[in-house]
C-alpha cells in the first residue's frame, strides 16, 4: 500500500528532529514532566504515512494476540512436565562387599533393577536396562552374557555389546563404600565409556586378601 513512501524506521526519528526542536532558540531547561517526543503529532503522522494508523493498531493487536496465544500454549506444554515425581529414590545400599561372590549378582535386580558384578579387581554395578530401547535384559550365567528379549541385543560380562542393535554398552552406576561398610550405589550417576567406567566412582577396587 504505502511501499513507495516507506521510510526506514531508524531514519524516522532523525526526520522528526527539525519539527520538534528549534536550533536557533537556546536550549530549554530539561523538563522531565513533558511526554516523550515520540508521541508527538508528527510521530503519528509518520506512522500514518507508513502503515496507516488503523493498520498499525490492527497489526500490533495481532502481534499481542499471537504473543499471548504462543506463550499460553508454550506454558501449557510446560504444565505437562511435572516438577515433583512419585518415583523411588535412585540411590540404595547394597550390603557388604564380602557378601558377594565373584561374578554377576542378581540380588538387587528385582528391587533396584541393577546387577552388581564382582571381579578379581573389585566391584561395579550395571543398570539392568538395555541401552537400545529400555527393556530389561536377562543374565545367562552359563553363556556369560546379558540378552535382551525385545530386539536381541547381547552384552558380555563387561557390558559391551556383542550382538544385536544396541548402540552402546550397558550403563554402569556409581558405586562406593559407605561409612557403615556397605556398598552404596547411585543410579543417577551413569557412565559407559571404556576407560572412564573402570575408574573413579564407577569402580570400587576390592581384592580378596
Amino acid at each position: 500500500m504505502t511501499t513507495t513512501t516507506r521510510i526506514h524506521p531508524r531514519s524516522s526519528t532523525r526526520l522528526m528532529e527539525p519539527a520538534t526542536t528549534n536550533p536557533a532558540a537556546p536550549a530549554p531547561a530539561p523538563r522531565p514532566a513533558t511526554p516523550p517526543e515520540v508521541f508527538s503529532e508528527a510521530f503519528w503522522r509518520q506512522l500514518e504515512e507508513r502503515f496507516g494508523r488503523r493498520q498499525f493498531l490492527l497489526k500490533s493487536g495481532w502481534a499481542f494476540f499471537w504473543l499471548f496465544l504462543g506463550g499460553w500454549l508454550l506454558s501449557n506444554l510446560r504444565y505437562l512436565f511435572p516438577n515433583v515425581l512419585y518415583e523411588p529414590g535412585l540411590s540404595f545400599k547394597a550390603g557388604r562387599p564380602e557378601d558377594y561372590a565373584l561374578g554377576v549378582s542378581e540380588k538387587f535386580k528385582k528391587e533396584q533393577r541393577t546387577w552388581i558384578v564382582r571381579n578379581e579387581e573389585g566391584f561395579f554395578c550395571f543398570w539392568a536396562r538395555c541401552t537400545h530401547l529400555g527393556c530389561t535384559p536377562n543374565w545367562f550365567e552359563a553363556e556369560g552374557r546379558f540378552k535382551c528379549p525385545c530386539h536381541g541385543s547381547n552384552f558380555n560380562r563387561a557390558g559391551d555389546v556383542i550382538a544385536g542393535p544396541a548402540p552402546k554398552p550397558l550403563w554402569r552406576c556409581a558405586i562406593q563404600l559407605a561409612d557403615d561398610g556397605q556398598l552404596i550405589i547411585d543410579k543417577a550417576r551413569l557412565e559407559n565409556r571404556p576407560g572412564s567406567r573402570e575408574q573413579g566412582e564407577f569402580f570400587f577396587p576390592y581384592k580378596s586378601a
Binding site: 557378601d99 558377594y100 561372590a101 549378582s105 542378581e106 540380588k107
Partner: peptide
C-alpha cells in the same frame, strides 16, 4: 545367610 556360589 549362605554362600553365593549359585543363585540367591
Amino acid at each position: 545367610f549362605g554362600q553365593t556360589v549359585s543363585v540367591d
